[in-house]
Simulated assay, not measured.
Amino acid sequence: MNTEAGAAVVVGADGSASSLAAIRAAAVDAVERGRPLRIVHAFIWAELSGPDGGIVYGPHDTRMRADAERILAASLVEAEKAAPGVHATTALVDGNPAPVLLGESRHAVLLVIGDRGLDGFRSLLLGSVALHLTTHAACPVLVVRGRDNATGPIVVGVDGSAGSASAVGFAIEQAARRKTGLTAVRAWDALDVWGQRDTMPLVSDPGDLEAEEHRVLSESLAGWGQRYPEVTIQQEIVRGRPAAVLIEQSQHAQLLVTGDRGRGGFAGLLLGSVTQAVLHHADCPVAVVRSSRATV
């Protein structure tokens, strides 16, 4: 994440309803952070037949670019309506959405995208683009989905890994800005404490296992209460599979925060089914925070 004073909140725009929801969320976040907002539309030229019969790319019909500019203009209006006083700019960038937004993330404090898009953002959460962004973006990625105007606490998944440590920092900072509470959740399964059903844990008594889970959760949150005394932190140990637990928690949250990779119940968070399940089925926006980037 770029922590320089001028680093912006970046949001992808394509004119879809999902994109407009992302723009509203990004505008509010930018104002809360005291950061500028950069609204980006990835523009792909139409394929044309060249004089030699080959494929060339170019402005055969300037109406396409005019449409793109109208999308940005409407997006700017939406941002200013959602967060009066936001310092927002727009950018029309040639290229495919994934590489364009990945490039933007290198200079951003946060990248915001909608859960489904049109044109260049088609199939955003149905194929490789969303997974690519959440895996490789150089800053946290906020995927806006679920309930409109979701309320409740910030929920963060905790497993004691470096990834969840970064997620905790991001989540409590969000809770402080939004003046709400933080619920830190650790999911565990007595048969799968470290994500390996063929490896028996050193502690096998269910009571001892749960006590160990409480210890890991408490250690993961150590120091944050002193740093953010205004945030009420609630700890929850939930027995169950991580994806199901997080999706259930999202029904009562305004934001769900996860790390990029985990251990224990959150193993392979961005590598397999857990991330896809959360991104597809969470009932509130989801923020994915990479462990290799400091968030606070």
Rank of each mutant, 00 (worst) to 15 (best):
G163A: 08
L131D: 13
M1A: 14
H281V: 11
G117S: 01
V40F: 04
H87C: 10
V9K: 03
P51V: 08
D29H: 13
I237W: 08
V156H: 00
A175H: 06
Q276R: 15
A73N: 01
R33L: 15
A73I: 01
V129Q: 05
K81T: 08
P153R: 04
D14Q: 00
S161L: 09
A243K: 07
I23L: 08
R241G: 07
V10F: 06
D52A: 12
T295C: 14
R227D: 11
G54I: 07
R215E: 14
A287M: 00
Y228K: 06
V231H: 04
T134S: 09
R197Y: 05
A171S: 01
V56P: 07
R186D: 03
A17K: 13
G157Q: 04
A137E: 03
I237T: 12
E104C: 06
L72T: 02
T89P: 06
S204E: 12
H41K: 05
S128T: 15
L92M: 07
H107R: 14
A108R: 03
G146A: 13
T134M: 13
L191M: 13
A167P: 03
A27W: 03
Q254T: 05
I23P: 01
G265W: 00
E47H: 11
Q249D: 00
A282M: 02
R63L: 15
N96S: 14
G169D: 12
S204T: 15
S273V: 10
E230W: 07
A138Q: 14
T258R: 06
A190T: 11
I237M: 09
S49D: 08
F121E: 01
G264D: 03
R116I: 08
P36F: 10
A82N: 04
L209K: 07
A130T: 09
L126G: 15
T62K: 09
L279E: 01
A30Y: 04
W194E: 11
G103K: 03
V56I: 15
V141A: 03
A8K: 06
A167N: 00
A165P: 08
D115A: 15
P97A: 15
T258S: 06
I39F: 09
D67G: 08
G160D: 03
V156C: 02
D94E: 12
D148K: 11
W194N: 13
T3D: 10
E173Y: 10
F170V: 03
C139W: 03
P153F: 06
H252I: 09
G268Y: 07
A79Q: 04
A175R: 05
L191A: 13
V11H: 01
I247M: 09
V216T: 10
R293C: 11
N2Q: 09
T151E: 10
G12L: 04
P51K: 07
S164E: 07
G103N: 14
P99L: 09
I71Q: 01
S128H: 14
E173W: 08
A22R: 04
V155H: 02
V129G: 06
A46V: 12
S166V: 08
